[in-house]
């Protein structure tokens, strides 16, 4: 309960902070729409030349893009700002204040700062889904939806775990804000279905940096094309990855605490 209250207070603070910058508030909203358009334009151009790309039709590819837009909003609106915040704490040596609070530190830092206007991305994603399914002329079954939701869960967990790993590095080498930035830019790859890549890159984006898991699998789930082994593999893999990230986080915190005493 206390944790919930703390998070609520933090969200409120983020919201007031965001509202304070008058121009930003309007501009950022418009920006979110603009970037969505920027993401869409290449697809529009590509599908002028082709009916299908590596087995994906335009509306099917829109589903991938929908997940991408939504997750990118989550990444840039909630995950990155909060983690930037931690990195700032580490740099200024004020993380002690966070660790002193009687709430789980990982939870506290990972929701410390959000950019509320990025929620527009979620609406944008919803709009893309609606349009895509109208184009497809059919709607996903409830099983598909359930599966997609599970895949979305794994996507969020994986993204969050990667971010936590990046921050854990911040305890050892201080200037890693750029590393987070690098991850953000690599995430751009997730806008395409993973089958676009062949050879080494395909393996990297499926297993090493599981971008396929984040957008392609949820899209396949919505289309009812996700196979059972892939689903199970994704769930197990995600659980392992999250546990790994949590373990690393704990080790880092322990090191940080002992180092600064």
């Amino acid at each position: 309960m206390r944790t919930v209250n703390v998070i609520r207070a933090q969200l409120r603070a983020s919201l007031s902070l965001a509202v304070q910058y008058r121009l930003d508030f309007v501009v950022e909203g418009l920006l979110a729409i603009l970037w969505m358009a920027v993401t869409l334009v290449p697809l529009l151009v590509v599908f002028q030349a082709r009916q299908q790309i590596v087995g994906w039709t335009f509306p099917e590819m829109l589903l991938v893009l929908g997940w991408f837009v939504g997750l990118k909003g989550l990444l840039e609106g909630a995950v990155s700002p909060s983690l930037m915040n931690v990195i700032e704490h580490v740099r200024k040596g004020t993380l002690d204040f966070v660790l002193l609070k009687p709430v789980d530190a990982q939870l506290l830092v990972s929701l410390a700062k959000i950019e509320p206007w990025r929620s527009i991305d979620l609406f944008g994603a919803a709009a893309i889904f609606l349009y895509a399914f109208r184009q497809l002329g059919r709607w996903p079954s409830s099983t598909d939806l359930l599966l997609a939701a599970a895949m979305l869960g794994t996507a969020v967990v994986v993204m969050y775990s990667i971010a936590i790993l990046v921050v854990s590095i911040a305890f050892f080498a201080v200037r890693v804000d750029n590393l987070l930035y690098l991850f953000q830019s690599i995430f751009d790859v997730a806008r395409w279905p993973s089958s676009i890549f062949r050879g080494t890159l395909a393996i990297v984006f499926t297993y090493v940096l599981p971008l396929a898991l984040m957008t392609t699998y949820p899209a396949l789930a919505l289309l009812g094309k996700l196979t059972l082994p892939t689903t199970v593999g994704a769930l197990v893999g995600t659980a392992l990855f999250a546990a790994f990230a949590r373990a690393i986080w704990r080790v880092s915190i322990a090191r940080y605490t002992s180092a600064s005493s």
Partner: peptide, 15 residues
């Protein structure tokens, strides 16, 4: 981080 052209190249190469 300046990898957008490569991301686009991946798409077009597939096309």
């Amino acid at each position: 981080s300046t990898n957008m052209p490569l991301v686009m190249l991946a798409l077009w190469a597939a096309v």
